[in-house]
Lab assay of single mutants.
Amino acid sequence: MAAAAAAGAGPEMVRGQVFDVGPRYTNLSYIGEGAYGMVCSAYDNVNKVRVAIKKISPFEHQTYCQRTLREIKILLRFRHENIIGINDIIRAPTIEQMKDVYIVQDLMETDLYKLLKTQHLSNDHICYFLYQILRGLKYIHSANVLHRDLKPSNLLLNTTCDLKICDFGLARVADPDHDHTGFLTEYVATRWYRAPEIMLNSKGYTKSIDIWSVGCILAEMLSNRPIFPGKHYLDQLNHILGILGSPSQEDLNCIINLKARNYLLSLPHKNKVPWNRLFPNADSKALDLLDKMLTFNPHKRIEVEQALAHPYLEQYYDPSDEPIAEAPFKFDMELDDLPKEKLKELIFEETARFQPGYRS
């Protein structure tokens, strides 16, 4: 834990890192770190609560700039109880001085990944967590956004079992017609939660990839272990087919990539493993919904509104309290091709509203 900075004593240090967030945020305490930044909790002297502050230093890398800009653009436009918001952003007053960006968010005690390492969940908890994931996802999908990296560590939890989806750095506007060349190379989302079509096709992607990830998360809540822990690309596919069985001819016809289709045709026939054999203690309604989410063919996979209306979630289902976005989200430009200098300018502009004396 960093010592509390005395008023006016300059930035606090946390594990050798400068955290320049005073005077409003003090009493910093280390939480963890990701690929390009550290997260601390801090005391907000204005709202009198502890908050989470993520320090991001992305400006050396085009990919990190892209992810940072995506996350900020999306989260500043989203407003939903099951999606983490941005409360404040701290950065230098000029673009030349801006080396880091500090993002202030609600402090959540833990995440689903940490929880599943230590606790076996009751059916009631599984049901409530799944409902909140789908409630947040309904809003995301209504904005025409794909999260693309749903996994237990991106689901934040607090002691009252509130759940918030975080990390929109890989999110995209849904565009089933656009052929994202190089899709697989830039697709760094965790393999275990990846839909089979991501490994088999490169053309376009749809909201059904997020539903697949939610199915993987439900299976993990039922058993405290990942359902498809593939060691590499082909191993991942083999794990999936080992449980779902061989795809039907109709399902194979959806695979545009001939090499991928021929690979699947070359494999020995596998039978589907019954879900109640894998999860003998699970609620039968939970397994019915799991089956509809972990469907090989993305066109037959359940959609988020149908999933919310499934009998497993009937005690929570309330369409009048499951809000959607006001308007579909649009990125003005494809960020993939922009140089990091341009992305830095866009991050600077996007964060201006939090600067003292800002006038829109």
Score class of each variant (00 low, 15 high):
A2Q: 00
A3T: 13
A3Y: 08
A4R: 11
A9E: 12
G10I: 11
E12G: 10
E12A: 10
M13V: 12
M13F: 09
Q17C: 05
Q17T: 00
Q17P: 02
V18Q: 04
F19C: 13
R24A: 03
Y25H: 07
Y25C: 00
L28N: 00
S29E: 04
Y30M: 01
I31E: 02
G32C: 14
E33S: 00
A42H: 11
A42M: 09
D44L: 13
D44V: 12
N45Y: 13
N47H: 10
N47L: 14
R50S: 15
R50W: 12
S57K: 15
F59R: 15
F59D: 06
E60R: 15
E60V: 13
H61E: 10
Q62E: 09
Y64A: 14
Q66G: 04
I72E: 01
I74Q: 03
R77I: 03
I84M: 05
G85S: 13
I86V: 00
I86K: 05
N87A: 00
D88N: 14
I90A: 00
Q97D: 12
Q97R: 07
K99S: 05
V101S: 06
Q105A: 11
M108V: 00
D111W: 00
Y113Q: 07
L115M: 11
H120N: 14
L121K: 07
S122P: 05
C127T: 08
Y128S: 11
F129N: 09
L134I: 07
L134A: 02
R135D: 08
G136H: 01
G136P: 01
L137W: 09
K138Y: 10
Y139T: 10
I140S: 11
A143K: 04
V145S: 04
H147G: 01
S153F: 09
S153Q: 07
N154H: 11
N154W: 06
L155Q: 15
L156P: 00
L156A: 06
L156K: 06
L157I: 06
T159L: 04
T160R: 08
T160H: 11
C161A: 07
D162V: 13
L163Q: 15
I165D: 05
D167T: 05
F168T: 05
L170K: 11
A171S: 14
A171Q: 01
R172N: 05
P176L: 11
P176S: 10
D179V: 15
T181A: 00
G182V: 15
G182D: 07
F183P: 04
V188H: 06
L200R: 11
L200V: 12
N201H: 11
K203C: 11
K203A: 11
K203Y: 11
K203N: 14
I209P: 04
D210F: 05
I211F: 15
G215V: 14
E220H: 10
E220Y: 02
L222M: 13
N224K: 14
R225T: 01
P226K: 00
P229W: 03
Q236P: 03
L237P: 11
N238V: 05
L241K: 07
I243D: 03
S246P: 00
E250S: 03
D251K: 03
N253M: 10
N257L: 07
L258T: 07
K259S: 00
A260W: 02
R261P: 06
Y263E: 03
Y263Q: 01
L264T: 11
L264Q: 14
S266V: 05
P268T: 14
P268D: 07
K270A: 07
K272Q: 09
K272R: 02
K272M: 02
P274Y: 05
P274F: 00
W275Y: 07
L278Q: 15
F279C: 08
D283V: 13
D283C: 03
S284L: 11
L287C: 02
D288R: 03
K292G: 07
K292P: 02
M293S: 02
K300Q: 07
R301V: 05
R301G: 00
E305V: 14
A307G: 08
L308W: 10
L308D: 09
A309Q: 05
H310C: 05
H310F: 04
P311K: 02
Y312H: 00
Q315F: 01
S320P: 02
S320W: 02
D321N: 13
P323V: 02
E326T: 02
E326D: 15
E326K: 14
F329V: 00
M333C: 06
E334Q: 01
D337W: 05
D337E: 15
P339N: 07
P339G: 05
P339W: 06
E341L: 05
K342E: 02
L343Q: 15
L346H: 05
L346N: 12
T351N: 10
F354Q: 08
R359W: 15
